[in-house]
Every structure is written in C-alpha cells, then in structure tokens.
Design a protein around this nucleic acid. Structure first.
Lengths: 203, 203
DNA sequence: TGTTAACGCAACTATAAGTTGCGTTTTTGT
DNA sequence: ACAAAAACGCAACTTATAGTTGCGTTAACA
C-alpha cells in the first residue's frame, strides 16, 4: 500500500533534499507575493519565478491556489505556546502582546489578511482550526485565573476571554493598526476590573 | 463648463429614467455577486448578465472593478444615525445591536467582507472614511455619558469606546458569527463596570 | 419633436490559467 | 555502487476571461 498523494505533498518530503528546498522557497515566495499583490491577484507563475522553480513544479505539488496558500499558512504559522507568568493579568498581557507582535510581522502580513478574507472555502477549515485553538488557549488562561481566585467564582471565562482579546485582535487583524504594550495593559486592566465588579454568570 | 465624468457617474443620473434603473440593478447585482463568489472571482460580465444589461454598459460607467464595488458600497451602506436613549448603557446597547443587525444582512454580507479584506487601495479610502465616522459616533456616545456623570471624570472615552465595541464588531465582521441582544448587554455591562472601577486617564 | 447621451451587440486583442509530453536530474532502495 | 522511481525543467498547447472598439438603436429631456 503506497502513501497517499496528499500525505506526500505536505509531510513525506525528505529532509534537506531538493524537494525540501523547493517547498521552502515556494512557501516563502507565496507569502511574499500575498503581501505584495494579495490573494486575488496571486499568479502561480510569478510565485514560481520568484521561488526559482518552474510553474509546472508548483502546479504538480499544489494543484490549486487554495492548497498552495494553505500549505504556506501551515508552514509559517506555528503554534503559539501558552504563557505562564503566575498571574492572570501577566498571562493576558503576555499572550496579547505576543499575538500582536506576530500579527505585525511583515512576512506574515499578506498571509493573515488572506486568511481573514473568506476567499476560499478550503481556507476556512484551516482558519477555523487555528482560531479555535487560539480561543481555547485564551479561555483556559482566564479559567485558570478564576480557579486561582483572581476573579470571582461564577465569572464566565469565555465572555471575559472574548472581551479582553477582541480589542487587540480587532486592531491588528481587522484594522491593521499597531498597538503598544501600554495599550494592551490598559485593556487588560479595564476588563479585569469589570469582571471583578460584575461577576457574570455562565448561562 | 461641463460637469466632470466622475460626477456624472455617481450623481448626475436622471431621477427615475433608464440610467437610474441601470445603476440600481447593477449595484444590486454587484452586491449579490460579491456575496455569491467574492471580490476576487467577481466577473463583470456575470454582474451585467444578472443586472440584465450589456457588459459594455458596466465597463463604460465603472471602468474598474474597484470603482464598481465602491459605487455599490456608497449606494447600499447608508449612514447610521446616533441613538439617544438617555443613558450610556442604553445608547451603547442600541448602537451595537443595530450595527450587528446590519452586518448580518445577507444582502450586505459580501460587500462587508470585501471592504474588510484590503483587496484594493481604492477601496481603502472609502473604508477608512466609513470606519472613522462610525468610530467617532461611538466615542461621542461615551463622551456624552461621561459628561452626564455616568462614568468618572478622567475616563478615556476612546479606550472605553474601543473596548466595548470591539467584541461585537470582531464577532460579526471578522468571525462572521452571530450575536444576540443578551450578549451585547453582557459586554456593555462588563465594560461599563470596568470603566467605573478603573477610571483610566487619557494620556 | 429633434438632439444628445446612454445602451445593445458583435467582434476583436491580450493575458493568464492550467495541461501535456518528454527529456533530465535527484533521490531511494538493495 | 547501481538500478528504479520520483521530482524537476522546458516548451508548446488549449481554454477562459478581461477589457476595448465601432456602429447601429433606443430612450430621455428641452
């Protein structure tokens, strides 16, 4: 029984060989071109030229534009590791600041804009998965803070996680504006104060 | 001195005549096609077919895809009127609930996704303008609440406006998820409680 | 009612997408 | 080391869509 083509495409690439070099350069070129011209105007031939390979090579490994962009996203968007500073306030500031930093990385700019643009149903599944992981990490941070007694029992961790992260994510992902660490801290402090005073109950 | 072509394109169309009908049907078809296939795959010829006109008619009035989408956005995205319920809490809930409702309108779906996707620099100016107006309206609501004494003096109205609106806008515009009125109220209540307890000073 | 602007239609050019066949190079397995 | 298999480069090709042009026709307005 031979391995499926889909597996060979993304995993079965030999480490360090020619194939690995091709994949790496095409992925980098895809991200660069996405930043330069965006998804709609992304031309496979130009990606190939920029990567120093023939366009048939790109077409054979990634038959569609969506698969190419998915591969680039998987390769360049590594998992975030959960912070653990000892306090909820520190964890939230650390997490949101790192998330903001990453979102401002010029190399990831076009890729993130593309993923947030609902351009292809095939990209949506990947985006959903990435978002769910990140969201779960945020909720877990808040839940841990509640268990530590930093917020009242009965506080809804999902609501707090959403309210504290949305202002930062909305700025950097949606508006494309920058944030500084003081702003992150101001948001976290206001929301934590609200949660402490409010004690919203999960429905 | 004859009127500029650009003015004739969007304004000088005679009321009720054939031209007005053409503009209206093309604008509607553009929005519908944006919802169906998105900006990247938007084909002028298909818009024309759907609008019941010839493609040359569309090309003559709107030479580029971006101008066509801009015109559709201007025609379909009317100004929001500021709420005035007497209380800051009521104003914020009313504003955010209406904004969420509008963002969920199926006819506007594709248009809003397009405007949020940074697909064309020509669209960005329009988007910036729309966003700035909306943002200013939210800040004014909060500022009025502070002047009424509903929040402490020294509260930063821009920070509060951002934190209270981002969770809702992030959900409906960025994530494409739905919100109910109870959720809007929960967000507003938590943020107002935080602002009351925090009294962040503008820098 | 005549003048003008807008529209419909058909044909055209140009560009990009995507495919195929074949020879060459690299990797892999023994 | 050497044969088999996989991946790559190259050139040529088909197809599809974008966008333009010229000309005859229709509808609005004074």
């Amino acid at each position: 029984m031979e391995p499926l083509a889909a597996e060979r495409r993304t995993q079965g690439v030999q480490r360090g060989g020619r194939a690995a070099r091709v994949v790496a350069s095409v992925v980098a070129a895809t991200a660069a071109e996405l930043t330069r011209v965006g998804y709609g105007a992304l031309r496979i031939e130009e990606v190939a030229r920029r990567a120093g390979v023939n366009k048939t090579t790109v077409y054979r490994r990634w038959p569609t534009k969506a698969e190419l962009v998915c591969a680039a996203a998987r390769a360049l968007l590594g998992e975030m590791v959960a912070p653990d500073t000892g306090s909820l306030r520190g964890d939230l500031i650390a997490y949101l600041w790192r998330a903001a930093q990453r979102a401002r990385d010029p190399k990831l700019q076009g890729l993130l804009v593309t993923l947030n643009s609902r351009l292809d149903p095939e990209l949506e599944a990947l985006v959903q998965d990435l978002r769910n992981r990140a969201r779960q990490m945020r909720v877990d941070l808040v839940r841990r803070g509640i268990e530590r007694g930093e917020l009242p029992r009965g506080t809804d961790p999902e609501l707090v996680a959403e309210i504290v992260s949305a202002p930062i994510l909305h700025r950097v992902l949606h508006l494309g504006e920058d944030v500084d660490e003081a702003h992150v801290a101001a948001v976290v402090d206001l929301v934590l104060a609200g949660a402490a005073a409010c004690a919203v109950r999960p429905t």
